[in-house]
């Protein structure tokens, strides 16, 4: 099995959690109520923890002496492999909640599939992460319903969030061609197979939230190959500033 392909595949999994975790962490101290500050920080911690484990393994697979920190702090935007959904600005609480839900449902399905990987490191990480992501979906799903079926204002804001984020969800299920051997070998999962279950779960919750599912339209793509929105560069500029100002330093 080509290590390069597995390295890239692991970056796709790890970078999603790193970038989404970073965005979620931006809420700390600014949430609508104290209880939610604590909840969002828990979710961000889970995601960054998942990213750390996956990037650690990516580092080992690459075998080039780049640690998980080097991968997080010293790669350029075009080297990141996360879905663009994860890097979009946090927006209001509606955007954050809807994104957490849309990505969370994907995440549960992906971890579930990866928990059956023939690679014991991958299946081990996935089994642990699966439990965390199930809670994220439970938390975010309840909030989507509360906000969608809350007040007129919350309904409008949440529908706007669904509409704005929807074109970024297609990318989650576009299976990269360079992972064909990995999937055939049972190391990673074919994300395109996860789409029907995702559609069903998402539509169910949106219906309970009295929200409309957007119609079929163009789906943005590129993040899995390093082509991103402009937002990622700014996110990384902030995230990497201290580490890059002191190359070689320990923290």
């Amino acid at each position: 099995m080509a290590p390069a392909a597995l390295f890239t595949a692991l970056c796709r999994v790890g970078d999603d959690r790193l970038i989404l975790g970073h965005r979620t962490s931006e809420w700390c101290g600014h949430a609508p109520i104290l209880e939610e500050d604590i909840a969002l920080a828990n979710i961000a911690l889970d995601l960054i923890g998942q990213a750390t484990l996956v990037l650690q393994y990516a580092s080992a697979v690459e075998g080039a002496g780049r640690t998980e920190d080097a991968l997080a702090y010293f790669r350029e935007a075009v080297e990141f492999r996360n879905a663009m959904l994860c890097e979009l600005p946090r927006g209001d609480f509606g955007v954050t909640t809807v994104r957490q839900f849309l990505h969370g449902v994907f995440s549960v399905l992906q971890w579930d599939a990866l928990s059956r990987s023939v690679d014991p490191t991958i299946s081990g990480i996935a089994a642990k992460a699966l439990k965390e992501s199930r809670y994220h979906v439970r938390h975010a799903g309840e909030w989507v319903i509360r906000l969608g079926d809350g007040t007129a204002e919350s309904h409008a804001r949440t529908q706007a969030a669904v509409d704005a984020l929807w074109p970024y969800t297609g990318e989650l299920f576009m299976q990269p061609t360079d992972e064909a051997d990995l999937v055939a070998g049972g190391l990673t999962a074919d994300v395109s197979l996860l789409a029907p279950a995702w559609q069903q779960q998402v539509r169910d919750v949106l219906a309970r939230a009295t929200l409309q599912v957007p119609g079929d339209g163009w789906m943005h793509r590129g993040g899995r190959d390093g082509r991103h929105t402009e937002h990622l560069g700014h996110l990384l500029a902030e995230m990497q500033i201290v580490a890059r100002s002191h190359p070689g330093a320990q923290w």
């Binding site: 109520i33 209880e35 604590i38 909840a39 828990n42 809670y135 439970r138 309840e142 509360r146």
Partner: peptide
């Protein structure tokens, strides 16, 4: 204690606050 609007909400807030 926690503040919450219903039982499921209270359960989640309790989990996040008191079982970290």
């Amino acid at each position: 204690s926690v503040h919450a609007v219903d039982a499921e909400h209270a359960l989640q807030n309790a989990r996040d606050t008191y079982a970290r």
